[in-house]
Amino acid sequence: MSAENKPVREIVTPGQVISTDPSHLAGRGAVKEADQIISVFVGLKEERGKYINVVPLNGLYNPQIGDKIIARVTAKTPVKFLMDINSKFVGILKPSDAFRRSHSNRGYPKSMGTYRVPKENEMGKFKMGDMVICKVLSGSRVEEPTLTSLGQELGPISNGVVIVISPTKIPRVIGKKGSMISLLKNLLHCKIFVAQNGRIWIQGRAPENERLLIESIHKIEREAHTTGLTDRVKAYIIQEKKIRGIK
């Protein structure tokens, strides 16, 4: 830790020995071979107690339970939707996890015999290519994740636009305690939903705002490994707003 209490961050490369201290343990992005801890990524080294981690600077999204992601319907089978989630996996969304049950079915005892509520065609509700905000219900490193679109903030997106950045840079777009997101929202008067899989839904007051927002997000993505990013982005947006005459 340096004087300003900032963790020391060094760029390490695959195969680099990042610690030879036998009491250290290999954290994420590192493997232990004999007494050496070796990085497996181009990334930033950080020490957390006994663990040595490497935070990769580039990489794909790996689904984790509870993540909120933006998925795209890319295929249908008679019983489920297959979703592109910007990962090596295809997400699975079953209609029972996607649509609220119709209330009309409830309360009819079986004794009512032949009466049947006609079943809605649930598979027709999402079209190919629709963007849906989903939550990861299950899945592991080797399994295809199942998703749900039922719940708060979840569901299909019908306006605005979705942009995509490298998923490793997402925490930076959110910022410490959401600081970067509120900065963007307040300075540019727009709505943002940052999904863990690298997709960001945005909707602004005017196309100029959206344009500057997209450029700011790309600036954050590009400079994600640097320090003092919040101030720089703030100065950038204020300056650009003056130049472009955006309110």
């Binding site: 300003e4 900032k6 935070v55 490994h225 640097t226 003092g228 919040t230």
Partner: peptide, 12 residues
């Protein structure tokens, strides 16, 4: 649980 992977380099 022991390791908390953090977002890339933090600002002050």
């Amino acid at each position: 649980g022991k390791t908390t992977p953090s977002n890339p380099p933090g600002d002050a």
